[in-house]
Structure formats: structure tokens, C-alpha cells
Design a protein around this nucleic acid. Structure first.
Lengths: 192, 192, 192, 192
DNA sequence: GATGAATGAGCGTTCATTCAT
DNA sequence: AATGAATGAACGCTCATTCAT
């Protein structure tokens, strides 16, 4: 097994363990077992458990950002761009429930405070950047309500996160129709 | 100090510790110190740490439900009722940031699985019940879109949770005007 | 309830708890519950738990000694006296299994070291004293083997303790005939 | 140090601590110190303290059984076989006082209930098996008294246990002559 | 005198991290 | 480079003892 493969196995085992059992139920020994490596080996790739977790989040975040960019066309109408982004994101969470469970826990915990701060300071390329531009333009063109960016984020992401959670818990089954329908409703909340 | 006071002190210390430092950073010894009691004392009121945490959530949940009922009038128009509920809730989170931080972490963690299941099975009186009725009526009267309950919950709560988080992290300052404005936008998402 | 009654209740609760659950499984709180008194009350009668246990043993020891004296006639033949003492003792253990369980654990634990030392130094009146005299006389009169006192104790008490244990564990049912028969066999071991 | 050595060091430290200070006075931390290992290390070899103790007893029991078999010849006369077994056992206890102290406490405590039950049900090879056969034959051949097995055990082991205790407490000094003499007296108790 | 709530030292156990192999 | 046995600090929890009522 080459190095980067091993690194990925460790990251994935961490993802699965935390997604399924929470931060509480994910000791390094179990992660190592699940990754098929020795416990000590993990420390050759990640200096501490916290860094492993932070790095896992960073990687997922980047991966999702890349996914959102796929097929995104900054020249299309704002509504269409918005639908594209949110539909992609929700679709991603629905097809990757473990990742969603991890991200959800990460973002709700004190772990994420640094992430949020960096994000708001514009450090690190992020999906938010796309929304940022989209919202600013649309507000200027009076297509969207005259609300602040943070409010738009709330109106745009909030419903999506709750739906992804309901999906992961088995309370709803999200198909393409339902996803599109709901994202359209989100648009209603922000459009003028 | 009378017994129920001490119990409340313990619950509040738990709330504050977990809100500020996460489940990780809240050992019983620290909670006890913060509550001004001995570590052993906590176990006179709560059999295990898990039960303490679960009970804390249950109590907050009940308290918030009561708060939502205040001034709620089932005879008023649906939009007004919706605005009342969501405004009250967001207002509550804004004025009780520690409680929000705790609730957010609790609901994102495996702790909450039981809670969600009970909720969906209608066990325990909950704020959701009010929304339930409200949504069903409004859908029947073609005031709201023809979406499922779970989708409404997502559209109604999602933005609110994100805003409360942004508020607690200091990214936005929510005043009454902003709260009302955003909740009205939420209504746009669900109304026909 | 008068004082001495309460004291007895505490002693009996201690006896029962330790007999049934061992030294491990007998916290003061449980003993207090079983005795029907407050936990603090126990400390008005016994300075520490160790003293309570030691005093319980002392009391049982004295009680049993008194029992052995009943009907004991130093003028009867040695064999008869021996049969009387051992039969009484085994009978006592059979009819008081909790006391036997407690005594057995006490004597096997480091608690008892002091007791043994005192006994050997002749401190405290004890059943052993009767045996002491009996053995010395019988050896002098060539009725018993020419063995040391300690060996006689072993030959006289050893079988009795094992039988009492087998009885308490339900492996044998000891009736009068069996008791007498076995004690007679013990006599065979020590007589010339 | 190889693994099995470390395991043995832990078992021996447990033996010594419990023999000297009782179950009470043998916390894992002290056992670990005495074994020269970290406290956590013990849990790599034994899942719980109870399992450590139970396993220690099991191992001692097996070792002693093996010792009794040494030089045991089922074709020799019953008396000789009996003297061999009991002399070996008492000799073992005299030369291994710590083991005797531990075994004594173990067998008197609630720990041992399971052991007794298994023994009586014939589970696990045990020294008792040898006695079993010996007694049955000797009774059939009218060499021994017509008593039940349990009674024989009492008459055979009882004195031996008391003597071992007196030896360990320093009240008697058992040499070969004394051991043999006493065991012969035990035979008198069971022979016809 | 009697209580039982309160205490905190001390327990058994876990687990992030280290390091000899 | 990789391992996993070893570690011990830190955890959740218990319980003998105290003391305000």
C-alpha cells in the first residue's frame, strides 16, 4: 500500500467511526483497526487526533467545494446558479450520509470555531465564495431581497442541513424531485 | 441552598461547560467546580453523566416549548402564528446563547437519536406539535405549498438554526428588526 | 426504639449484608438502609466501619462461646465433652448460616490477624479455652494422641468448618444424625 | 520482558498484594507498582480486576492439581494414596504461604461460589477428582467408614486448611514429621 | 440524639500518545 | 516506515465519613 493510500484509509476510518459513534465513540485504537493499520502508524501521518479530525474536515470541505464547481457556470441566471449549487450540495449529502454526519458534528462542536473564523476572514477557498459573489450581484440587481450575506446563508443552507439530517436519520427519503422542489422553495425565501 | 437549587446549579454548570468547551471539554470534576458542589454530589441528583446531559436537554426542550406557547393564539391567521413561533424561538436562542450552543451540539450528536425517534413517534409534548397543526391546516387551506411536514420543518427551522449559530459566533448581531425580517423571508419559502 | 435495640439492628444488618454480598458488597449506606437507620447514625455507635465489623465478630464470638458452655460439664468423660462442644458448634453454624458466612470471611481476611494473636496470647475468654483444658487433660491421661494443641484444633475444627460451608452452599443437608456421626469421626482422629 | 513473563509478574503481584493485604488493600495501582508495570498494562492482559483474580485462582488451582498428581500411583494402597495426596497438599501450602493466603480468602468470599458449583458439577479437572475415586473405592472395600463424599472431604481437608493457616500465621512450625503425623491422624478419622 | 445530603479521596478503567522493535 | 505493547494522566463513579439541620 502506498503512503497516500494509507493516509486515505486512516481518514476514511476516522470519518466512519465519528459519523457512526460520535467523537465520544471513536478511540484511535478503533480507528486504526478499521483502517487496517497499527495505532502508532496514524501518528506518522497526523501529529495528534485533533489534527487528524481537523484535516479530515478540511479535506471534505475542499472536496465538496470542488463538487459544487462542477457544471457551475457564472454566466447563467442567478436563480439557476443558486439551484445548481444547493441541489448539488444536498445531493452530495444524501449520497454521502457518513460525510454529512461527520460534518454536522464537527460544525456544531467547538472544533469548528477556528474554521468559521477563517471562513469569515476569507482564508481558504470555499464554496461560500461562490455564494458570496452570487448574492452580491443578485442584491445589486434587485433580484434578491436586500438582506445581509449572513442572512442569505442562513436562508440558503439552513433548510438544506435540516433535510440532510432528516434524510440520514431515515425520516424522509429524498429523491431528485423532492430535492429540486425544496431548493426552489428556498429560492422563494431569498428572491424579491 | 435547598435541593432543587443545587440541582439547577448542576444543570446550569453542565450547560455552560458543554456550551463553551464541548462534550469533550466538560469532565464531571470541572462541572462540579463550576456548580460549586463536590463531584460526588452530582451523582445524588443524576445517576450517570449521560443521564445528566439527557435530562438537561429534556428540561431545556420543555422550557422552550412553554416559551413558544406564551402569546400563541391558535385562532390568529397562519402567517401570524408562524411568525410568532419562529420569532419567539430565534429570540430565545439569541438571548440564551449558551442554551443554543448546548442544544446544537446535543442534536448533532448520537445522543439525540432517541430524542428524534420519540419526537417523530409523537412521544412527549413538543413545540413541533404546534407546527404540525399549523402546517396541516395551512396546506389544506392552500395557504402553504403542498409539501410534506418534514420539508416544512426544514424550511422553517433550518434558517433559524444557522442564524442562531452565526449570532452566537458573533458573525451577526440579531436585533428585533433583523429577526422579524428573516422570519418573514422564511414564510415566503413555505407560503404559496 | 431504644439505643441498644438500634445498635443490634445495625450489627445484624452488617452481618446479613457481608454474609450475603461479601466485604465488597456491603457499603455503609446499604447497611443503614437494611438496619432502618440513617447512615450517620451508625457512626454514633461505631467510630469506623472497621470497628463495626470487628465488634460484630467479637460479639458473635462471645455469643457462640456462651452457647458452647450451655450444658457443658467439665466432669464428664473427655469424649463426651468433645462431642458436646463440637456438636453444639456445628449445630450452631447450621442453624445460623449467615453468621457462619460472616465468620468464615472474617477469619480468612487480614481483619482477623489481630484476633488470632490475641487468642493465642490468651486475651479474651474464648471457646478455645475449653478445648485447651480438655486436650491437655486428655493428653496427660493418654486418652488422646500426643500432639500439640494447635494440631488438635486443626483436627477438631477443620472438618467442622468445611461441613458448615458445604451446608451453607447447599451441597449437603446436615441433620442431627449426620452431625453426630461426623463429630464422632473427628474424635477418632484425635483419640489414641 | 516477553509477554508471558509480564503476565506472570502481574499475576504474582496480585497474589502477593491480596495475600498480604486482602481484597480491600489491593488496588490496581499498587498491584501495577509491585509488578513493575503501568496500571493500564494490566488491562492488556485481563479485562477487569475480577477476571484477573478469578484467573489467578484458576491458575493456582491447576498448578496444585498437577503437583498432587506427581508421584501419585492409583495402584498403591488407599491409605498410602491418601497420605500422599494430603501430605503433598499441606506441604505445598506450607512452602507457598502467599498462595495459601490468597486461596483461603478467595474460597471464603462470594467470588468462589461459581467455582464451588462448577466443581460439584464435575466441570474442570480438579484434585477433588482423585479423592472422589479414592473414597468411592475405599468405601466399597470397607476400608473407610460409610460416609458420604462431602463428609470425607470435610474430614480430609478441614484439618489441613486449619493447619496451613496456623502455619502461615506463625502459630506452628510444620516440619515433615508433624505434617505426616497429622495427616495420619486424618486417616484415622475416615478409616474404619 | 438522629439524620441523610454533601463531600472528595480513591477506586477501576480508558485511551491518546510514545517508543522499542 | 510500521507496528502495537506499554504507559500514566485523566476520566466517570463510589463510598466511608462528616456535619448542618
Amino acid at each position: 500500500m502506498i503512503q497516500s493510500e494509507k493516509r486515505q484509509k486512516i481518514l476514511h476510518a476516522t470519518l466512519a467511526m465519528i459519523a457512526e459513534h460520535g467523537f465520544h465513540g471513536a478511540p484511535i485504537a478503533d480507528i486504526a483497526d478499521r483502517a487496517g493499520v497499527g495505532a502508532g502508524t496514524i501518528y506518522r501521518y497526523f501529529a495528534t487526533k485533533d489534527i487528524l479530525i481537523t484535516e479530515l474536515f478540511r479535506q471534505l470541505h475542499e472536496k465538496i467545494y470542488m463538487r459544487l464547481l462542477e457544471g457551475y457556470d457564472a454566466k447563467k441566471p442567478h436563480r439557476e446558479r443558486f439551484l445548481h449549487l444547493n441541489t448539488s450540495l444536498l445531493h452530495y449529502f444524501v449520497t454521502n450520509p457518513l460525510e454529512f454526519r461527520f460534518i454536522e458534528q464537527y460544525l456544531s462542536s467547538p472544533y469548528s470555531i477556528l474554521f468559521w473564523q477563517n471562513l469569515k476572514q476569507g482564508k481558504g477557498e470555499a464554496g461560500l465564495f461562490l455564494y458570496h459573489r452570487l448574492f452580491e450581484e443578485a442584491v445589486a440587481q434587485k433580484i434578491m431581497k436586500d438582506l445581509s450575506l449572513n442572512i442569505f446563508f442562513a436562508l440558503a443552507f439552513g433548510p438544506l442541513l435540516v433535510m440532510a439530517r432528516e434524510n440520514v436519520l431515515g425520516f424522509i427519503v429524498l429523491d431528485e424531485v423532492l430535492i429540486t422542489g425544496t431548493i426552489k422553495a428556498c429560492w422563494d425565501a431569498i428572491k424579491r
